[in-house]
Amino acid sequence: MLLGLGLGPGNPELLTIRAVRLLKEADAVFVPGRIAADLVAPYRTPVMLDFPMTDDEHRIRECLESNAEKIAPVALKGLAVFGILGDPNFFSTFSRLCEIITAHHPVIEFRTEPGISSITAFAAAANIPVAGGFEVTDGSKSSSLIRLKARHPKKIIANLKEEGYRDFILVERMFFPDMKVYRGDEIPEKSDYMSVLYARR
């Protein structure tokens, strides 16, 4: 098992309780840089991996391939944790790493554990409320949308289809004991107030 673990925005006090537990339980913890290593160090001695900050796609691919082969032996036998700043599903290298490992070691399973992302941390750092809709982008064209409080998901989906969205996932009561994840045709007419709908073009 390879677990992508969010380490938060960089302050050690913003590590989640679950993150600390998983760092202690892992067979090995891998990190992509010094800041992540410093966050992990009080709980484990991490394995530092080389992820160069470059636009050279060939160099990036070489490093991903090399790092995948360092992680795979641990993930094949036990729990390998890849600790990354922010959240592993938001603008991170974790998904690319998983693609490469899957190509060479398809039996390895993956999952992620959330960390405080820069998106939510920014609002706290800047001391500003975010109450309306907003767009998050790395400069590329937006291809997905997240709708909070999706109490009538089928109705929302019907409107989004007119805007070109095609893939939909609804998460109801996330990380509560009764959490439910619905995809495509499984999505119900009505949902809990604590529901989030994801749509992709």
Rank of each mutant, 00 (worst) to 15 (best):
M1N: 11
M1I: 09
L2D: 02
L2K: 06
G6H: 08
G6A: 06
P9N: 07
N11H: 13
I17S: 03
R18E: 13
V20F: 08
L22T: 02
L22F: 04
L23Q: 01
E25K: 15
A26R: 12
D27T: 00
A28E: 15
P32Y: 03
G33A: 05
G33D: 05
I35R: 12
A37C: 07
D38F: 00
L39E: 07
V40T: 04
V40I: 03
V40L: 13
A41G: 03
P42W: 02
Y43H: 14
R44A: 14
D50L: 13
F51Q: 06
P52T: 06
M53A: 10
T54G: 10
D55R: 14
H58C: 06
R59G: 03
I60E: 10
E65I: 14
S66L: 12
S66R: 15
N67T: 00
N67V: 06
A75T: 12
L76N: 04
G78R: 12
A80H: 03
V81C: 12
F82C: 08
L85Y: 04
D87A: 05
N89R: 11
F90L: 15
F91W: 07
S92M: 10
T93C: 11
S95P: 09
C98F: 02
C98V: 15
C98E: 09
I101T: 08
A103V: 05
H104M: 08
P106N: 01
P114G: 05
G115D: 02
S117Q: 10
F122V: 07
A123G: 04
A124F: 07
N127R: 15
I128L: 15
V130R: 10
G132R: 10
G133L: 01
G133F: 01
G139L: 09
S142P: 04
S144D: 09
I146G: 00
R147M: 09
L148A: 08
K149V: 13
A150L: 11
R151P: 01
P153I: 07
K154V: 05
K154H: 11
K155L: 08
I156E: 03
I156K: 00
I157D: 11
A158L: 06
K161M: 10
G164S: 08
Y165E: 10
R166T: 13
R166K: 13
V171Y: 02
E172M: 00
P177T: 07
P177R: 10
P177L: 04
D178L: 04
V181Y: 00
R183C: 11
G184P: 12
D185E: 15
E186V: 01
E189I: 05
M194Q: 07
Y198M: 12
R200A: 12
R201I: 11
